[in-house]
Design a protein around this nucleic acid. Structure first.
Lengths: 123, 123
DNA sequence: TGGTTAAATCGGCAAATGACGATTAAAGGA
DNA sequence: TCCTTTAATCGTCATTTGCCGATTTAACCA
């Protein structure tokens, strides 16, 4: 289509060095508008995209494992709300819950956490 | 308050080793339910919590700098929608836009990206 | 100055999110 | 077996998000 004009403009755009492209052309091959990887990384980020959920993950990081009730006690939120947040984290694969009698015991999923770190580091 | 009862239960919770806390007590000092740091990290995650925005960040990563129109062309979305996503990323501080004639030139904010990576790595 | 192009903003709409109290389900203990 | 405790789920509501087309704003060019 009109790619040539766009590419030409990108190259020419070097006005004072403040808008300089790295290469000669835009690397089409390195960019896909839609990819599963974007979805996955965005999904993990979205799950962490709420301060309460960050707090929960950091809490689990510091205590290794924790019963749901303990988490609820430490947050200024209703039990049902905390449960929802836990579900979001679990659905994203970031935490795991195991039934322990009448309680549920949550812990981090280290693999998912590593995956997230790896994807972040690649930015 | 009733911390003693809660802490006591946490210690006792070691039923079969599958729900074992890492330390003797839950480390109160290491956890704050509400903190600016949680807000900040969650804010960055939230901004990256959409596949299109991940795609934009990765594109900018690969081309160093890019005019808004180029980004629009590569995404199957209306110009206004892409502009909204760019605004989200800009508000989070992850990208910067500089006016270049009639165009706007976007690039990554490397400092914010480093901040995000650092916070991620700490998980 | 007038016209053209690029990008931000507006208005509207459907869907998702986050919060809550109430209810249900599951498991242990009296 | 019944009762209590724990946590998930349900129903509701207000707010936010994501998308679009239309409009406005801004800057260059003729």
């Amino acid at each position: 289509m009109e790619e040539d004009s766009r590419m030409a403009r990108s190259v020419l755009d070097d006005a004072g060095g403040k808008c300089l492209p790295a290469g000669e052309i835009l690397p089409e091959v390195a960019f896909e508008a839609l990819s599963d990887d974007h979805e996955r990384f965005a999904g993990l980020c979205k799950a962490l995209g709420h301060p309460v959920r960050v707090a929960i993950v950091r809490l689990l990081l510091s205590v290794e494992t924790c019963v749901c009730g303990d988490i609820v006690e430490r947050l200024p939120l209703a039990q049902s709300t905390v449960s929802q947040h836990l579900k979001v984290l679990k659905d994203a694969g970031l935490i795991e819950g195991s039934i322990d009698g009448p309680r549920t015991c949550y812990c981090l999923n280290r693999e998912a956490l590593s995956e997230f770190k790896g994807l972040s580091e690649a930015l």
